[in-house]
Design a protein around this nucleic acid. Structure first.
Length: 201
DNA sequence: ATATCGATTATCT
DNA sequence: GATAATCGATATG
């Protein structure tokens, strides 16, 4: 069975809708002749103007301009001096919004991920829980950086970064407030697969 | 088990 | 100059 990236129309909608539907989908990364795959188990929706916690809240800047471009593009930013975070732009071009990918269940390329994370297995086994449970961790595991991936079209078949539908059926989806922010903490814009062992926090 | 803290830099005030 | 959509280490119950 072959898989293809989700179409742009999937992302050209409200980030809350996209966030919910991204649960159970997968991030696919082609890197150094290897394929890395992780099931999305935790995401957060960030809206446009009117969402004080969103990078897009203050309008277009050099950093966030991808958010105002066409949907289905990677928005990668550097945070706390040492981590990258992966988002996918949503909404039609001109209207900001995105979904932050916060945690994955590693499905393929575990050895590559462990190496990228600096978690060399001592006995040959990989501690999968530490690989991709967290936005910074999953970027490190998949080699996602701002220089390499910011602005990349994740719906393009020739891209080395895809979001695909693996036909996985989520059992139970839960909503909670977003993590690590100080504004707009009341709204439940974090979506998690309740049954997953790979949710962060 | 939870709590606190330092790292380190792009970005914005 | 302050802050940040985080992580890993260390300390303590």
């Amino acid at each position: 069975m072959r898989f293809y990236p989700l179409p742009r129309s999937f992302f050209s909608r409200d980030p809350r809708r996209v966030a919910r539907e991204l649960l159970g989908k997968a991030v696919v990364r082609f890197r150094k002749k290897k394929i890395l795959v992780g099931r999305i188990v935790e995401v957060e929706a960030y809206l446009g103007k009117g969402d004080p916690a969103a990078h897009a809240a203050a309008g277009v800047t050099a950093r966030n301009r991808v958010l105002f471009g066409p949907p289905g593009h990677a928005y990668v930013y550097f945070i706390y001096g040492q981590h990258f975070c992966l988002n996918v732009s949503c909404q039609p071009e001109g209207k900001a919004g995105c979904v932050l990918i916060r945690a994955l269940e590693p499905l393929a390329g575990l050895e590559e991920m462990a190496r990228a994370r600096g978690l060399r297995a001592k006995d040959g086994k990989v501690a999968s829980k530490r690989l991709t449970t967290g936005p910074g961790r999953l970027c490190q595991a998949m080699g996602i950086t701002r220089a390499r991936d910011n602005g990349k079209d994740v719906t393009w078949e020739d891209s080395d970064l895809w979001i695909v539908d693996l036909r996985f059926r989520p059992r139970r989806i839960r909503r909670t407030p977003r993590i690590g922010i100080r504004q707009a903490t009341a709204e439940k814009l974090r979506y998690i697969l309740a049954e997953s062992e790979f949710v962060s926090g």
